[in-house]
Structures are given as structure tokens and as C-alpha cells.
């Protein structure tokens, strides 16, 4: 297993695209957060912590790309044949890829969230270092990581990068748009509870927690369940299918 992880790490670190996409996660998150923080109105009742972490909306797209490319690039270039010939235990390959990917996004995400939170601390009034802030910040890093792993799982299952990224972004973006147009509150709450993005981002809330249908950690668990299901599906298809 150590060799497998090492091999995946070498592949990831020597691809010049990886560093650019990781920089993209960082840049996209910080840029949008900075925009949100500087344009936030004074005296608005919006959650300041959530505002300072708005960049995750864009950062997650780049994280998803990184997750998808981690495997679909191998299918695109035929590299997957070499990989699986060298490491026949396919589940181990996927696990190693997931571990390397998680490590990368955790690192880039931590920097991105720290800078975003620092901007919020400097600019927004009433931005205090509280346990809720720590939860929102750490949870946002985990959120980005789970999104990247969701991309990896789906891309492993469907192989094609375009289809995979379409499915991931559809899963993330379509639930809240549909829920917005539904006025029967029970149906709307149900959709919000199962939506990977809506529920997952409850982890950023520090005010009005009682109005949420789920607690922040429950929300992140919903996203984790989607990710686990996607990785399981990816692992199964990798196992039974010809590469």
C-alpha cells in the first residue's frame, strides 16, 4: 500500500497541471471570499463567518476538477493500463489516489480558508474567534476535500472527464435551484437535507442554527455519505470492468 501511495504521489506531484489546479482552488476561494467580504453591507444581518467563506462556492468547482482529473486523465492517455498492470489491486489504487488527493486538497484548502477567515477578521465587524468560527473554518476545508473525493468517485465510475464534471456540478448546483422554486416547505426541507452542497455548507453557519433543518455536522455528514457512495460505486466499477 505504501508503494501504491508513493506511486500516486509521484504522479500527482510531477504533473504540472496539479500545481496549477491546486493554486486554482486557493485563488478562486480567496478571490471570491475577498469580494464578498469587501462588498458586505455594514449592519446587515448576514452571518459574517459565512460571508467570509463565500469563496468555497467557486473553490469547490476547482476541487471537483482536481478530483475528476486524478483518474480521468489516466483514462484519457491510456496510462490506466500501465497503472493497473503495475498495481493489480485496483481497490488499493483508488484508495491511494483518494489519500493523495485528500492530502493535496486539505493543504490547499487550509491555506485558502485561513486567508479567507483572516480577511473576514480584518474587515468585518463582529468577527470573533469562537468555537463556531473554528468549526466553520475546519468544516470548510473538509467540505472542499469531500467535493474533490466526490469528483474522484464519479470520474472513476463514468471514466469520461466531461461527463463526470457535468454530473458533479449538476449534483451540487441543481438541488438548491430546484428547492428554491418549491414552495411546499416539507418538500423543500427534504431536498435541502439530501442536497450535497446545501447540507454540506450548513457547516459554515454560525448564526440562526435553529432555522436549519440539520445541525452543521449532520449536514457535512450528508455530503460525506454522497462521497462515500460515489467512491464505493467507483471502486466497484473499477473492480469489475475492463480498464
Amino acid at each position: 500500500m505504501r508503494n501504491t501511495v508513493h506511486a500516486e504521489w509521484t504522479k500527482a506531484r510531477t504533473l504540472s497541471a496539479t500545481i496549477w489546479v491546486l493554486a486554482g482552488v486557493l485563488g478562486a476561494t480567496v478571490a471570491v471570499s475577498a469580494l464578498a467580504v469587501t462588498s458586505a453591507r455594514h449592519g446587515s444581518d448576514a452571518d459574517p463567518v459565512k460571508t467570509s467563506l463565500t469563496g468555497v462556492y467557486l473553490g469547490q468547482v476547482v476541487a471537483a476538477i482536481l478530483g475528476v482529473l486524478a483518474i480521468s486523465d489516466e483514462y484519457g492517455t491510456g496510462m490506466i493500463h500501465v497503472t493497473l498492470a503495475a498495481m493489480p489491486r485496483r481497490a488499493a489504487v483508488l484508495a491511494a489516489k483518494a489519500a493523495v488527493l485528500a492530502g493535496q486538497v486539505l493543504t490547499a484548502g487550509t491555506v485558502a480558508i485561513l486567508v479567507s477567515a483572516l480577511l473576514g477578521r480584518l474587515i468585518l465587524p463582529g468577527y470573533a474567534l469562537t468555537p463556531a468560527l473554528l468549526r466553520a473554518a475546519a468544516g470548510s476545508v473538509l467540505y472542499l476535500t469531500l467535493i474533490a473525493l466526490l469528483g474522484l468517485g464519479i470520474a472513476t465510475a463514468v471514466r469520461d472527464a466531461a461527463v463526470a464534471i457535468g454530473i458533479v456540478l449538476g449534483l451540487l448546483f441543481l438541488f438548491p435551484i430546484i428547492a428554491h422554486y418549491i414552495t411546499i416547505t416539507t418538500v423543500q426541507h427534504y431536498l435541502n437535507e439530501i442536497a450535497p452542497m446545501t447540507a454540506g455548507l450548513y457547516i459554515q453557519s454560525t448564526t440562526g442554527l435553529r432555522t436549519l433543518p440539520l445541525t452543521p455536522w449532520q449536514g457535512l455528514t450528508v455530503l460525506a455519505a454522497w462521497t462515500a457512495a460515489a467512491l464505493l460505486l467507483g471502486g466497484l466499477t473499477l473492480q469489475v470492468r475492463d480498464a
Binding site: Y57, L58, V61, V62, A64, I65, V68, L69, S72, D160, A161, A162, A164, I165, G166, L169, F173, P176, I177
Partner: peptide, 19 residues
């Protein structure tokens, strides 16, 4: 590359609506 093209297009057309 399709991953980049699809994500840029979806981010440009759908994400602003969502936000």
C-alpha cells in the same frame, strides 16, 4: 481538455444564477 471546458461553462452559466 473537457474537464476545464465543462467546468468553466457551467460555472459561467449556472453558478451565478445559483448565487
Amino acid at each position: 481538455t473537457s474537464a476545464a471546458a465543462v467546468s468553466v461553462a457551467i460555472t459561467a452559466v449556472i453558478l451565478p444564477y445559483l448565487l
